[in-house]
């Protein structure tokens, strides 16, 4: 299944018509570090973590919006309604007029960093402990959310 040089870490199944073989093609993103459902899996998921937020926000709202739309970074729009986006998901709360909810920057930072601290049943991924978003990227997202009047 995997090439002998081990340069390609993730493969996707491809069904080829009139063939008795299931073909596997390189997938465009490497998932090899994440735990799977395999019965012999030993890798772990990071347990819930408190974020260490230091006060001046220094985030850029424009950059935050780009991250919120990026399927491989924030990907917020897949679940949340975001102003100006025509076909958002409906899983999470709407982010319209988000500033009017008057969350503090520290709270918002914690929500994005690891939501499991405050809402253990939430579906939202813990972006910080999983290493999907860096500290600066979360700050940009907080700045973007605080800019939604």
């Amino acid at each position: 299944m995997v090439d002998p040089m081990r340069s390609i870490k993730t493969l996707a199944p491809k069904v080829v018509v009139d063939s008795g073989q299931l073909h596997w093609v390189p997938h465009f993103i490497d998932f090899s570090q994440w735990p799977t459902l395999c019965k012999d899996e030993t890798r772990t998921i990071p347990s819930p973590q408190m974020a260490h937020y230091v006060a001046p926000l220094r985030g850029d709202a424009a950059r935050g919006r780009v991250i919120a739309m990026d399927p491989w970074r924030g990907n917020c729009v897949t679940c949340h309604e975001i102003p100006g986006e025509e076909w958002p998901g409906t899983f999470g709360a709407s982010l319209h007029h988000y500033k009017q909810r008057r969350h503090t920057d520290a709270n918002l930072y914690q929500q994005i960093f690891d939501v499991r601290i405050t809402a253990p049943r939430a579906v939202m991924p813990p972006f910080g402990p999983l290493g999907i978003l860096s500290d600066q990227e979360i700050r940009d997202l907080v700045a973007y959310l605080q800019s939604l009047e």
């Binding site: 493969l11 199944p13 299931l22 090899s32 994440w34």
Partner: peptide, 21 residues
């Protein structure tokens, strides 16, 4: 094969069809 596609959507390496999981 659908499970394998689901696995990639969830973000982990697909298992081989016929695996115990």
């Amino acid at each position: 094969v659908r499970f394998a596609q689901c696995s990639l959507d969830l973000g982990f390496n697909a298992l081989k069809p016929g695996s115990q999981a």
